[in-house]
Simulated assay, not measured.
Amino acid sequence: MNKIMISPNRYVQGAGAIADVGKHISLLGTKALVLGGKRGIGAIENALSTSLNEHKVQFIIRYFGGECSHQEIARVAEVIKQNDINIVVGIGGGKALDTAKAVAHSAKIPVAIIPTIAATDAPCSALSVIYTPEGVFESYLVLPKNPDLVLVDTAIIAKAPARLFVSGMGDALATWFEADACAKAFAGNLPGGLSTSAALTLAKLCYDILLEYGYRAKLALDQCVATEAVEKVVEANTLLSGLGFESSGLAAAHAVHNGLTVLEETHHAYHGEKVAFGTLVQLVLENRTTKTIEEVIRFCLSVGLPVTLKQIGVAQVTPDKIRKVAEATCAPGETIHNEPFAVSPDAVYAAILAADALGNAYLQKTL
């Protein structure tokens, strides 16, 4: 199997970067569909409109329906057909951005991604996570290419709720451990190859940045300011995590996230929050050292990421519930099978409960 590494065509990051968005988009298309939630679009609409008009890019705005589902993708694709759109501009958080990428792929036109939160590594990836209209994980849609443009204005990120930024750290937290598991198993990455040394190095850098700058960045975000620590973590959450996960691979952490979506009480928890707990489950499943597990738990507690089932909404933990999660986590085709050993629902069931017990034990120590 060949080694394959993929990445966005252009990545732009900095405070005030939105002022130049028209210049970058005009290289890709002349009539844009701007797709995003009302809050995301509202955060940048004036600056976006000014820059697009300045660079003579026509545009229409449509609001995202809430779930990246096949039904939503079909709805937006029809808008593209009816309006002669030649570029999609996705704005907001992970599900809106995944929808924009999927729709652009369907229409065979370029896509520009403008995240207004740093809550997931979705902006840079050639992947859309498909859910049912009710919010239950359905499948991964692997796209033939990464976004043509990813533009991240850190001044806008700094104004978003800090919990979203922390959720992004939870998503990024899994990157190195999943990449390492895939490398040990010689498992294929998302573009269908093996990881390069560069991708593994970026995945490890992502983890190192989180440990070094995550706590300071979270405190700065609490004050709605973009410090250099925030710049570092935004890059980790967005670029390094995105490159690391898709060019090295996913393993147990994201599969546990997908399994948790079968429990309706977890739907209020953000993607990265569930992935953070999934990372802890992966570490238990792999029987990682106490030092590594403690390092991850302490990081999670320092920035406010969940380390227990209760913290992601499972107030009443029952064998039946955890069994359902374990079965869904181990479904055929799930990324947990990229681990360098055979995984069973029984093993995952045990790891989830053990991870929850560890999280509760360390949580009690901090109270």
Rank of each mutant, 00 (worst) to 15 (best):
T238D: 09
T238R: 02
L240W: 09
S241N: 10
G244S: 11
S247P: 12
S247A: 12
G249L: 11
L250F: 14
L250R: 09
L250G: 03
A251Y: 10
A251N: 10
A252W: 06
A252L: 06
A255P: 07
A255F: 01
V256G: 03
V256R: 04
H257G: 01
N258D: 15
G259A: 11
G259I: 09
L260C: 04
L260Q: 05
L260F: 06
T261R: 12
V262E: 04
L263A: 13
L263R: 08
E265A: 04
H268C: 10
H268A: 15
H268D: 13
Y270D: 09
H271M: 06
H271A: 04
H271G: 08
K274F: 06
A276K: 03
A276S: 14
F277S: 03
Q282I: 03
L283R: 04
V284A: 02
V284S: 02
V284C: 11
E286A: 15
R288P: 05
T289G: 07
T289V: 01
T289K: 12
T290Q: 13
K291N: 13
E294M: 02
E295A: 13
I297G: 01
R298I: 00
R298V: 00
S302V: 02
V303N: 03
V303I: 06
G304V: 07
P306I: 01
T308S: 15
L309M: 13
K310R: 14
Q311H: 13
Q311E: 15
Q311A: 14
G313L: 06
V314S: 05
V314Q: 03
V314G: 04
V314W: 01
A315Q: 15
Q316I: 14
Q316C: 11
T318E: 15
T318K: 14
T318W: 09
P319F: 05
P319T: 13
D320F: 12
K321M: 09
R323A: 14
K324S: 15
E327Y: 11
A328H: 06
T329W: 03
T329Y: 06
E334N: 08
E334V: 00
E334P: 00
T335W: 00
T335S: 15
T335H: 03
T335C: 06
I336M: 08
I336T: 09
I336G: 08
